[in-house]
């Protein structure tokens, strides 16, 4: 694995992401989408046609899905052809490790959404805000204090603002 060997060979233009991993990711992505759209294309065939118009409910989606299948196959072909002269880059794990903070933030956001129906908006938001600020560098001292103030202000503040001023209640929590 050569994570510390970035795309030094190709710093400009479209070649910037021609590492093997990136090309392979594109290839798999387009193939997966092509398969998905094919399934949906077949599914759309069961939509009822209409007696008042030549195009039924299914025609436009099938037109779009058909084009999507073609475009994804074309993109997959493009990626497959680029695979031959792709430069070697880091592996998937190195790629993920480089973006560990982004992944951790997204994971925390997912946890936040899962916990919200149980904890309620104010408490879930407060914990999420504290956790992610800590994660992103507010570890001690004054920055941690600021993080705590921000967490309380936005966790409770948004709840009150939407509940009281805009009359849009946010989840209160099932646990209490």
């Amino acid at each position: 694995m050569s994570a510390n060997n970035p795309s030094a060979a190709a710093p400009t233009g479209p070649a910037a992401d021609s590492t093997r991993g990136a090309v392979l990711a594109n290839l798999l992505f387009n193939l997966a989408l092509a398969a998905l759209f094919t399934a949906l294309f077949i599914d759309a065939g069961e939509l009822p046609s209409s007696m008042w118009e030549p195009l039924g409910a299914g025609a436009f989606p099938r037109l779009v899905l058909g084009a999507l299948i073609l475009f994804n196959l074309a993109l997959a072909l493009q990626a497959a052809m680029a695979l031959g002269h792709a430069t070697s880059g880091g592996g998937t794990l190195a790629w993920l490790y480089q973006r560990r903070l982004a992944c951790a933030t997204l994971a925390a956001f997912a946890l936040y959404a899962l916990a919200m129906p149980w904890l309620g908006f104010p408490l879930a938001s407060l914990s999420f805000l504290l956790a992610v600020q800590w994660l992103l560098g507010a570890r001690r001292g004054r920055r941690l204090l600021v993080a705590a103030i921000v967490a309380v202000a936005f966790g409770l503040g948004l709840h009150l603002l939407f509940g009281q001023v805009f009359q849009i209640p946010l989840p209160a929590g099932r646990l209490w």
Partner: peptide, 26 residues
Amino acid sequence: SIIVPVVLVCCAVGALALNNRVTDLY
């Protein structure tokens, strides 16, 4: 480190404000 989590919470509020259903969050 402050902007990103705060705006993410605003995103959650935005998604909830439309129909107030948690499935929109997922």
